[in-house]
Simulated assay, not measured.
Amino acid sequence: MGTDDHKQVVLQVGAVLKKLRKEQQWSLEDLSKISGVSKLTLGNIERGETNPTLGMLWKISKSLSVPLMELFATENRVSLSRAGQGLSIAEDGDNWVIEPIFQNVSNENEMFRAYLQPNSSYYPEKHHPNTTELATVMSGKVQINVNNESYILNQYDSISFRADGTHSYINDSNDVVVLHIILKYPPNN
């Protein structure tokens, strides 16, 4: 994604965040108290002056009780999602990168391509209450830990679990692991 495209996404996230916050009739201070993200940082995000981390976006979406991808919502009604093109969000020094798939499908499901770099791990924030995460390994082999239980998944293996508890992804190999992830939110989250 080019610099101009990236800046446009940052501005779009800011505008959507401001709209969602105002719909709830919250001040920046209100959202800061609920989310744990500083008022200054929230203001910078809303003005498109900072690139928020994935962890911050999870905290904000959880506090607003909206799916993560709602922060990236656009008005387009037709979407084409090509791997490696469009929006990507990196976390943990680029060890974990997600690409949203069909951002505007519904408020109850979100789909991502996720890339876990060789010999790295990712420990996401707990998701919204009663959220289910479904992950399918598209290439590679990954260890997924869910509430102190470990599962090894090979190519095309899938797992489903409650994502509002602790979970992590570990790649002990020398190859990038590619995953297809669906987050299923409860109705009226």
Rank of each mutant, 00 (worst) to 15 (best):
E108V: 06
Q85A: 04
A83F: 09
N107P: 01
N107S: 06
S106C: 15
I101N: 03
G93C: 09
G93V: 10
S88D: 09
Y123P: 00
S106M: 13
Y122L: 02
A114W: 09
G86V: 11
P100G: 12
L116Y: 05
P118F: 08
I101S: 01
A90I: 05
F102P: 01
W96Y: 15
G86E: 14
A83N: 06
A83D: 05
E99H: 04
P118Y: 12
E91G: 10
N104E: 15
E110F: 09
L116Q: 00
G84C: 01
I98E: 05
F102V: 04
L87H: 06
L87N: 05
S121E: 13
Q85V: 01
S106A: 09
M111P: 00
Q103C: 06
I98V: 15
D94K: 12
P118A: 05
R82M: 07
A90M: 07
E91T: 09
E99D: 05
N104T: 07
R113A: 01
W96T: 05
R113C: 02
N119L: 13
S106N: 13
S88Q: 14
Q117A: 08
N109K: 15
N109G: 00
R113V: 01
I101W: 07
R82G: 02
G84P: 00
N104H: 13
I89K: 14
N95M: 03
N109E: 12
Y115K: 02
D94W: 02
G86D: 13
I89M: 14
I89V: 15
Y123S: 12
A114I: 06
L87G: 00
